[in-house]
Computed example of a mutant assay.
Amino acid sequence: MLIGITGGIGSGKTTVAKLFAAYKNVTVYYADLEAKKLMNTSEVIRKKLIREFGEKAYDTNGLNRAFLANIVFKDKEKLTNLNEIVHPEVYKHLTNFIEEHKDKEYILYENAILFENGSDKICDKIITVTAPHEVKIQRVIERDKTTREEVLHRMKNQWSDIKKKLQSHYVIVNENLNTVKENVKNIHNKLTEK
């Protein structure tokens, strides 16, 4: 069973996914993390990104994330182009991951743009993680050492929480850790009911 877990930037979906990962019969595929790895290791992606964004897409350290972020978070079309280059390779990688972990009760598929890139269609159930707007902004400013303006730019390119919640089977509000842990336990129990 493939369970999608998503949420807007700063919602804490990775933190929530790690709580699910604590159950021994569950594994998590972190799409953002795997995409970053693939963008540095896949020759297919590298060639396409250089063709689309120029030689500055990579520097001596690998992917030039700051350069790309500066372009794609201000231009929706460029963001779409980036996703169209990276997503097919991530999907192939995910398919192999699912095959390798088919012994698990379920695989949690953590993806920030689950709905935006159509990945919700391959999921059996979907969990959306939300948090208050200002909390999300502060989390991202602290985590990425960025500005409020940059965070708001990124948020504009994602679906609203309301739109995501309407298409989800479960919603977790990530504000109080004890409540979140209780929600994770309840959802896990429902997903593993025989």
Results as ranks from 00 to 15, higher is better:
K76L: 11
E100F: 15
I137H: 06
N186I: 08
T146C: 14
L191S: 08
A57M: 13
R65N: 09
K37L: 14
A21R: 07
L166Q: 13
I85H: 01
D32Q: 02
H93A: 13
E134T: 10
E134G: 03
S119N: 11
I187F: 03
K125Y: 06
H133P: 00
I50T: 06
N83E: 15
G8Q: 06
D75Y: 12
T192I: 15
A69G: 12
I71Y: 11
T130E: 10
I113Q: 00
Q138C: 08
Y170V: 09
R65K: 15
S42F: 05
P132Y: 06
L49D: 01
A66M: 07
D75Q: 04
I162W: 08
N70W: 11
N61Q: 10
H87W: 14
L2G: 00
F73V: 09
Y23C: 04
L49E: 01
K145Q: 12
I162L: 09
K104E: 08
E77I: 12
W159F: 13
F53V: 04
K185C: 05
G118M: 14
L191M: 07
C123E: 02
P132R: 04
E99G: 09
T6V: 07
I187N: 00
A35I: 05
E116S: 07
N70F: 10
H101Y: 15
T128H: 02
N157Q: 13
L38P: 01
E84F: 09
E182S: 09
V151G: 06
N117T: 14
I85Y: 00
K190T: 06
T41E: 15
A112V: 12
T80F: 11
K47Y: 09
F97A: 14
K104W: 11
E100G: 08
S42C: 07
R46G: 00
K156S: 14
A69S: 15
E149R: 10
E77P: 03
E52M: 08
V135K: 13
A31W: 02
L63C: 07
A131W: 00
K185Y: 12
I5W: 02
S168A: 14
N186L: 13
I45Q: 00
A35F: 04
K165L: 10
A69C: 13
K121T: 11
N111K: 11
G118E: 12
I141N: 04
S168F: 04
T128W: 01
H87G: 08
I122M: 11
K156G: 11
V86R: 02
G62I: 09
L68Q: 03
Y106N: 04
I122T: 10
I162C: 03
H133N: 08
T15R: 03
D59E: 10
E110A: 03
D103P: 08
E52L: 07
